[in-house]
Design a protein around this nucleic acid. Structure first.
Lengths: 310, 310
DNA sequence: TACACTAATCGATATTTTCGATTAATGAGT
DNA sequence: ACTCATTAATCGAAAATATCGATTAGTGTA
């Protein structure tokens, strides 16, 4: 099916308004001959006469009037489309499909939400919470635009903007002997029963690394699937754990009698960053988002390392 | 505001379906370079990137997806427009704005309606009932496509298709002396009190002419504005009148005690015809309509006179 | 009859679209 | 590390299309 041109439709609409080829041409910023040819071509493609040409005046046939009405709709919709895209010109406007891992999402998002909403009211976030591995797959498949994940992690396929450092804190019951000390080391934890998240969660690996434990040395009995569960277990006296400061700041320990102590170790923190495909045209957006996150978290960016591996 | 091309939008939609420039090009029956250029041009006019080009695969940005959705709508509407016009291809389809005079309308339309509906289900009549003069003005101004009027009438501006002859019948009370005669002449009516429609109605002029009366010779006291009123007045004994056979056939005298007699006179009938602008492209439609009317009325067309004047 | 007005038409030009061929970038297989 | 295959972008040429200015033909008016 051969379609008419938007230009032809526009010409028809103008002609229907002016009822005069000459003035219609003027209004459309073309010559009368162009207007004439345009209408003629339109009638040819449609196979029907839309305009009744009296020498003195131009009459629209009933069919022509129907076509004019529809043409107006089509033109309006097209203009709306252009307007929509134009409105999405600024940084961080439109839809952004953002992945986020569960050990960051609940603690980071509520913190930045108000600012994000205030500074970029045109932004619509579509959030997806999942493990890092799954997020990166979706990212590479184009189902996500960006993801907020924790480093170190192997992400050479993607660009990354690391914007925060998130130290680990040792969580222990109030009466625990280690509460006496202001600062704890990996050595202090050696003989404790440490509780970890389940396999496949990046935080588990990070904390294992921070605390100097190894897979083999764990008592396999206790594995939680969420930080909240973990906290409940520690509160119930099953052992100790480590939590990212971000989670503690967000009030994860509220209502419990648990204490926290900083950990002195080689890798006593995770880094938080934004990853996205190198080919994604919205780098400016991601820069702005990372900037906002950095400001909001108030933590200075640690000495930059271009690629961190776990 | 510069608008994108429908071709570009179509290419975008296809590309969004295939996620592959080469296959999209194939599906759009163009080369890959054309597809590439088309999308690029579209992005240029919109001022935003809609497609994220990975070397291995093509990703649609969220904004692009929105544009694709709207583009689909626009394309569908345009195709609907074409379909609409195509559907209006046959004779007597679509809207026809038809004027009709009050002394024809109520008697002719109910008669042809079923056939018209059966033979041309795609036809939508927009009827306007008015005096001949008014109809012709609207016709020349393009507010009507055609009009059904009675001849003789001066209509040289328009094309005309006369399709029926409608004789006048003398209407008189059952006990009237003239009922004795099988056929009446103008001479018989000379001394009778004839009742006519009001000024400005073409039937008045036609009947005046048929009955041999002149404006000056009338008793000005009785003037009706509709045929129904006229009949009521005759039934009440105020005098005689003449009615077109068409009206009598349609049952205008039903429920009255009135008789009819044929009139023998030079101009003892009016002719019924269709008029329309010479420039109107739907001559075929009008021919078909006149044909249908002629068949339906069962009256052979009188010897053709190209232009009848009153 | 001459004149003004209007839409169609025509030939020339300008612009746009499309194509085929080539290039550059990337990933896969050896 | 080195092809090879795949894919989108690019480029110049050719084709198609749109536009223009000038002219023509048809109508109504003075």
């Amino acid at each position: 099916m051969r379609l008419p041109t938007l230009t032809q439709l526009r010409h028809l609409v103008i002609l229907a308004e002016t009822h005069h080829f000459g003035r219609a041409a003027e209004a459309a910023f073309v010559t009368q001959s162009t207007m004439s040819a345009s209408i003629k071509e339109l009638e040819l493609t449609l196979g029907q006469t839309l305009i009744e040409r009296t020498k003195r005046q131009v009459q629209i046939t009933p069919l022509g009037a129907e076509v004019v009405a529809r043409a107006k709709d089509i033109l309006n919709e097209t203009e709306d489309l252009v307007a929509l895209v134009s409105a999405a010109q600024g940084v961080l406007t439109g839809t952004l499909r953002l992945g986020i891992i569960p050990t960051i999402g609940p603690f980071l998002l509520p913190r930045i939400w108000p600012t994000l909403h205030r500074d970029y009211p045109g932004l619509k976030l579509e959030l997806q919470e999942d493990k890092t591995a799954r997020l990166l797959v979706d990212l590479s498949e184009g189902k996500l635009d960006a993801a907020l994940i924790a480093f170190p992690y192997e992400v050479d396929l993607f660009k990354q903007l690391v914007f925060a450092d998130d130290p680990f804190l040792v969580v222990l019951p109030k009466k625990h002997p280690l509460c006496e000390k202001e600062r704890l080391t990996a050595r202090d934890l050696k003989k404790e029963n440490l509780l970890f998240l389940d396999h496949g969660n990046c935080l588990r690996d990070h904390i294992l690394s921070a605390s100097g434990f190894h897979e083999g040395s764990l008592s396999q009995t206790m594995k939680a699937t969420s930080l909240l569960t973990l906290v409940q277990m520690v509160d119930a006296g099953f052992g100790l754990t480590l939590l990212p400061k971000m989670a503690v700041d967000a009030g994860l320990l509220r209502g419990t009698g648990l204490q926290v102590r900083p950990l002195e170790a080689a890798k006593s923190s995770r880094r938080i960053g934004l990853v996205f495909r190198r080919t994604n045209p919205r780098t400016e957006d991601f820069g702005a988002l990372a900037e906002l996150l950095r400001d909001e978290l108030g933590t200075p960016l640690p000495p930059s390392r271009k690629s961190e591996k776990s």
